[in-house]
């Protein structure tokens, strides 16, 4: 297991080096902070989404789900569309970054927490019902978005199109700090839950028997998921093409890769492994996009193509061998 982590760490360093140095022209006193901020943003977003997906899969006991099934990405795009619809593309572009960030962060955490609070109140925590409700609401949000987008002028649609994909071309350092402020404590709390998550993964009865009734852990995990996804999405935009249907794909691929590369039921292994892989995939994808594709393609598209193919390749090689 250690050698796998050494391998991952090596890959991460390699991708960081590639990202920082490839095509570097001009003075390092400009490049270092500029690319450094992008790098920090990429890694933060990677850790957030990987951790949120691991938590979500554990508490739902379903390895094909990611938190975006609950419509977080869709909510971001709806807010974006509504703003462009109401203010026009120029009005939207004039909005100050921090305001937009707080608005997104507020709407996403607010809606998420409200939903979870309503659903987990009283009675048993029926996770299937929770996920179904999330899917239904996500579809509702998507329908409203499509509806609004149809009434928007094609030239203004361009704004939405480019802003509804995650991008790291320019990172506002104030927002980076704000994101870190929200995300780092949540990541630390998720790490503290690692042993309890192992027990929760055993299933309701076994976990209860071991003195870890699932409801409390589920509730705490949901709050963390909400904060992590909202922070990552508010900083960068959805890391999703929206084409994989309700299950966005980045978290799914990253966690599936982690299961393949470091197979272990322990979250003390799974959490860091998924986070490392997420960082490698994001940084690598961003490097490919900047240097090879010259920014002509949104980052999530690159990630989904490369990450998905990598997963299928590794899995099938394992299945054949």
């Amino acid at each position: 297991m250690t050698d796998r982590f050494v391998l991952l760490a090596g890959l991460l360093i390699l991708s960081i080096l590639g990202f920082m140095t490839l095509g570097a022209e001009g003075s390092w006193s400009f490049l270092l902070p500029f690319r450094g901020a992008k790098l920090a943003a990429l890694m933060l977003v990677g850790c957030c989404l990987a951790t949120a997906t691991v938590l979500f899969q554990t508490i739902t006991g379903n390895r094909i789900l990611t938190p975006s099934v609950m419509g977080f990405d869709a909510l971001y795009v709806l807010v974006l569309t509504a703003l462009v619809f109401g203010l026009g593309a120029a009005g939207y572009a004039a909005l100050p970054g921090p305001l937009l960030f707080s608005l997104n962060m507020g709407v996403m955490t607010g809606a998420g927490l409200l939903l979870f609070a309503l659903l987990m109140r009283g009675g048993r925590g029926d996770m299937v019902r929770l996920v179904l409700t999330g899917i239904v609401l996500g579809l509702l949000i998507r329908a409203l978005t499509t509806f609004l987008q149809r009434m928007i002028d094609p030239s203004e649609f361009q704004t939405i199109q480019s802003a509804s994909f995650a991008r790291f071309t320019f990172v506002d350092r104030r927002l980076l700090a704000a994101t870190a402020l929200a995300a780092l404590p949540a990541l630390a709390l998720a790490w503290r839950m690692r042993f309890r998550l192992d027990v929760l993964a055993l299933g309701t009865e076994a976990a209860t028997g071991l003195g870890e009734p699932p409801r409390r852990g589920q509730r705490q995990a949901l709050v963390l998921i909400c904060v992590l996804v909202a922070a990552a999405t508010a900083l960068a935009g959805p890391v999703s093409t929206g084409f994989a249907g309700p299950s966005s794909f980045f978290g799914l691929v990253v966690v599936s890769l982690a299961h393949l590369v470091t197979p272990s039921p322990r979250h003390a292994v799974l959490l860091p492994s998924a986070a490392l892989i997420a960082c490698i995939v994001l940084i690598g994808g961003q490097t490919v996009m900047e240097r090879l594709l010259h920014l002509a393609t949104p980052l999530p598209v690159v990630i989904e193509l490369l990450g998905g193919l990598l997963f299928l390749f590794l899995l099938l090689r394992k299945a054949h061998g």
Binding site: G61, R194, F195, R196, D198, V199, A201, L202, G203, E205, A206, G209, L210, G211, E212, P265, R266, A268
Partner: peptide, 28 residues
């Protein structure tokens, strides 16, 4: 307690499963 329908949803090794039984004492 050992419940009747112990469908363990995680993919575990025997040693890891038995080790989980100690969780109430060591918390991980």
């Amino acid at each position: 307690i050992m419940p009747q329908s112990s469908a363990i949803s995680a993919r575990l090794r025997v040693g890891e499963l038995v080790g989980m039984g100690r969780y109430p004492w060591h918390g991980g």
